[in-house]
Simulated scan of single mutants.
Amino acid sequence: MSKPFQFKQFTVHQDKTAMKVGTDGVLLGAWTKIEDTVNSILDIGSGTGLISLIMAQRSFAEVIDAVELNNEAYIQSVENFERSDWGDRLFCYHASFQQFTEEIEEKYDLIVSNPPFYNSTYKELEEDRAMARHSESLTFEDLLKGVSLLLSEKGSFSVVIPFSEEETFIEIAETYLLFPQRIARVKGSINSEIKRSLVQFSFTKTKVELSELCIEISRHNYTDEYTELVKDFYLKM
């Protein structure tokens, strides 16, 4: 049984779902720019509910909705929401994002997602984890189409994807009039390759704010930049 993951202001229980707390989710939650005017947030593919909980800690948004297809992950998200200090602001829908998009008429000021990665090497993983990590359950096209329908006119969409998919993802986004505002490329250590891209989009085309984030100088010796980004969440930072 997986132990609960204790953060500074909330706990994430992860015994029911194959998707555990990971660096990607924390990075996305911490890095995403949240304007003071944000009143409604949507988390696509909530998993344990981690990103929604970070959004609740970081913002005054009255509505923080999440959508999760996998039954065990949905139950886990609901439990983690109810155990938190922000249970009155957090709500999880049990549905595919495609179903959710068809049924919801409200627009969101901020949408966040740590979407499934498409890489076929994940297919040998146990079924729940493979579904969460394989984009056949939610393609980039479906994700971006839905976001374009649910995002408010002046809202933004923040996502973490493999760096190898960054160019393709941005090209698809532009077909839905979503343009990158900020991009942070993430690598584990100084000498390692860039593995992830954090990208925040809006409907406004502007000059992209580009940065690079390195997590470690050496094993468990974190860079100042990474420490500053996540210090409000991790207990040991």
Score class of each variant (00 low, 15 high):
residue 1 M to E: 13
residue 5 F to T: 04
residue 7 F to D: 07
residue 8 K to G: 04
residue 11 T to K: 15
residue 16 K to A: 14
residue 17 T to L: 07
residue 18 A to F: 08
residue 19 M to N: 07
residue 19 M to E: 15
residue 20 K to F: 07
residue 22 G to H: 11
residue 24 D to T: 05
residue 29 G to N: 02
residue 31 W to C: 06
residue 31 W to S: 06
residue 36 D to R: 02
residue 37 T to G: 06
residue 37 T to Q: 13
residue 38 V to D: 06
residue 40 S to Y: 00
residue 40 S to P: 02
residue 43 D to A: 04
residue 44 I to M: 06
residue 45 G to M: 06
residue 47 G to P: 05
residue 52 S to C: 03
residue 53 L to T: 03
residue 53 L to V: 01
residue 55 M to S: 05
residue 56 A to Y: 01
residue 57 Q to G: 09
residue 57 Q to I: 08
residue 60 F to C: 07
residue 60 F to N: 09
residue 61 A to N: 03
residue 63 V to S: 03
residue 65 D to E: 07
residue 66 A to W: 03
residue 69 L to C: 15
residue 71 N to D: 15
residue 72 E to M: 12
residue 81 F to G: 15
residue 84 S to W: 13
residue 88 D to P: 07
residue 89 R to L: 14
residue 93 Y to G: 14
residue 97 F to A: 01
residue 103 E to W: 13
residue 106 E to I: 14
residue 107 K to P: 02
residue 107 K to W: 04
residue 112 V to I: 15
residue 117 F to W: 13
residue 118 Y to A: 08
residue 122 Y to K: 02
residue 122 Y to S: 03
residue 124 E to I: 15
residue 125 L to W: 09
residue 129 R to Q: 07
residue 129 R to W: 10
residue 130 A to I: 03
residue 133 R to V: 02
residue 136 E to C: 15
residue 137 S to Y: 10
residue 139 T to E: 15
residue 142 D to R: 10
residue 144 L to E: 07
residue 144 L to H: 08
residue 145 K to N: 12
residue 150 L to E: 06
residue 150 L to Q: 02
residue 153 E to P: 02
residue 154 K to V: 04
residue 155 G to W: 01
residue 162 P to T: 09
residue 163 F to Y: 13
residue 166 E to C: 09
residue 168 T to A: 07
residue 171 E to Q: 14
residue 172 I to R: 08
residue 173 A to N: 03
residue 173 A to Y: 00
residue 174 E to N: 04
residue 175 T to E: 13
residue 175 T to K: 12
residue 175 T to N: 15
residue 177 L to R: 02
residue 179 F to N: 00
residue 180 P to S: 10
residue 180 P to V: 00
residue 181 Q to Y: 01
residue 183 I to S: 11
residue 184 A to D: 10
residue 193 E to C: 11
residue 197 S to Y: 11
residue 202 S to I: 01
residue 202 S to H: 00
residue 205 K to S: 12
residue 207 K to C: 02
residue 210 L to W: 08
residue 211 S to H: 05
residue 215 I to P: 01
residue 217 I to H: 05
residue 218 S to P: 04
residue 218 S to C: 08
residue 219 R to Y: 13
residue 222 Y to S: 07
residue 228 E to L: 14
residue 228 E to F: 12
residue 229 L to H: 04
residue 230 V to T: 09
residue 230 V to A: 09
residue 232 D to I: 13
residue 235 L to R: 11
residue 235 L to A: 12
residue 236 K to G: 02
residue 236 K to Y: 05
residue 236 K to I: 05
residue 237 M to T: 13
